[in-house]
Structures are given as C-alpha cells and as structure tokens.
Design a protein around this nucleic acid. Structure first.
Lengths: 143, 143
DNA sequence: CCTATTTCATAGCCTAGTTATATAACTTGG
DNA sequence: CCAAGTTATATAACTAGGCTATGAAATAGG
C-alpha cells in the first residue's frame, strides 16, 4: 500500500465512521464543532480567527459556529481587553459536558465495531491518532 | 489516552485533513464520492442500494450521487438483466482517472505535513488504515 | 392475478460550509 | 493627531450535500 493509498483509506474510513456514529446516535453535530470544542478544551481560550484556523474552516464559518455554540451556552465570549475588535472564546462547563457526552456516544456507537480489537491494535490506533493530531494541529499551518 | 479519545482524535484529525486538502487543492468533492468510487474501483460494480450502504449514506443520497457521477461520466449504468428495477453501477476509465488524480492531489496536499514521517510512522498509519478499513467496510454492517 | 416487497427516483427541506463585503478598531507615516 | 491602511469579526447571499417522506415500477409468493 502506498503512502497515498494509506492516507486516502484513513480519510475514507474516518468519514464512514463519522456517518456510522451519526446514524447510530441520531445526534449529528458537525465535525467543525467538535474540532473547535476540543481545541478550546485542551488549549484554552482562542480568538475567533485563530479558532477558524485551528479547525480549518473559514473565519465567517467560525463566526457562525461560535454564535450557535454561544446560544447553546457551550462557549462564552470574553472581551479581549487589549483589542476591542476581538473576543476570546472559552469553553464553558456545559460545553465540556457536551464534549464528554459526545465522546461517550461516540464510544458507544463504535464499540461494536471495535470490540474485538486487541491491545496491540489499540496501540496502533493510538499512535496513528497522535501522528495525525500533530500534523493537523494549528501549529502545523503552512500559510 | 483512552480508546474513546483515540477514536475521537482520529476522526477530528481526519476531518481537518480533509479540509486542508480541499483548501490547498481547491477541488472540493465530497467524501461520499470518493468512498463510492473506491468501492467501485476495488470491489467492482454495485447496485445503487448496496453502494449507499457501503458508503454509509442514504439510498436517495446515493441516487443523487450516482446521477451526478454519471453526468460526469465517472460511472456507467449497466442494466441488470435479472432485475429491471436495478442498475449495476460501474466505474469508468474516466472515473478511475479521476480517482487516481484525486489521490495525487491528496498526496500533494498532504506531503508537506507528512514529509518528515519515518518508515515506522508510515507503517503505523498503514496498519491503522487497515484496521479502520476492515471495520467500516460494507460487511461490517450491524443492521 | 393480487398483494406485499423491493429497488430506484423525486420532492422538499435543512445544515454547514463557502466567497464577497461591511463595520469597527487598531496602527502607522507624515 | 489625523488620514490611510490593516486587522478582527460580522453579515449577506449562495451552494452543496446530506436527510426524510413519498412515489412508481418491477419482482415474488400465495
């Protein structure tokens, strides 16, 4: 299997897995949402623009996303004292709970597909996740 | 890292990678398209309904997708002689070329992010892709 | 045959993105 | 200290890709 095929296969499988999860849980929240929430959860508050870059969507896209997240009270806007054009977006406790809940749902949906995976298989997936994570994190932005 | 976090991280990274690829190549074709094309490419002709299950989208969704693919001449419809309600959808040479082209684009877009990955890292990704592939293939349908 | 089932197509809708543009605040050269 | 440019977010208008519900035609079975 070539490198290209490997990445393609990973992407295709991941998207399928996403749909499997969406179908079996019923809850279909966009990947950008979880992307943003997990960034906020692990790296702390971000500006809208930075969050857009981290989640790899456009700035207006993130503006809309933040608006809907703020409506649900999953994030809070904190005024940036040094630049009153900007906001710092922080995840709320409710948002953390939602993220945790999603992880549980995800686990439930995936469990039947992965229950026969041995420890070594899990280690492989874990390392793969780590590699992919490193390379798609905000700091890996070329531009 | 728990199993749940591993899967979540893989999903989130994959979606980001998809957007990175879409942004840097300009060409944004849906994941269901590639999912369907790669099934057709590796497993041969399928009926619309089976293809929908394989790509994990709804049957009407696949009907629309097949229509647009047929317009682009990336797939051809073959009448099913044993059941005239059904069609066999097969990938065309043009479709194979498009798939190959997409793989090249994908590789180009990803290369800068993965060029420092060593052989062992690639082996990890390859095995992960294999594990994910097995578990999201059509045969892994629970329902 | 007549009904039930299966297979694909159509209709209508919704959400999540996009680009282009506006507004407001910060920065900088003169 | 103000004009001009730049930056940060917001708004508007649009598109695409999915969904559910439903319809129409063919098959299958009593």
């Amino acid at each position: 299997m070539t490198a290209t095929h490997t990445l393609e296969s990973l992407l295709v499988s991941s998207h399928r897995l996403t749909r499997i999860a969406a179908q079996s849980t019923g809850s279909s929240v966009s990947s950008a949402t979880w992307s943003a929430l997990s960034v906020l959860s692990t790296d702390g508050p971000h500006r809208v623009g930075d969050l857009a870059k981290a989640a790899r969507i456009s700035q207006p896209g993130m503006t809309k996303l933040v608006q809907s997240l703020a409506e649900d009270e999953w994030v809070v806007r904190i005024a940036d004292v040094e630049d009153s054009r900007a906001w710092l977006i922080a995840i709320s406790d409710k948002g953390r709970a939602a993220l945790a809940g999603w992880r549980v749902e995800l686990a439930g949906a995936m469990a039947p597909l992965f229950d026969d995976l041995d420890d070594e298989g899990w280690r492989v997936l874990e390392r793969a996740a780590q590699i992919m994570g490193e390379r798609t994190a905000r700091s890996a932005v070329a531009a």
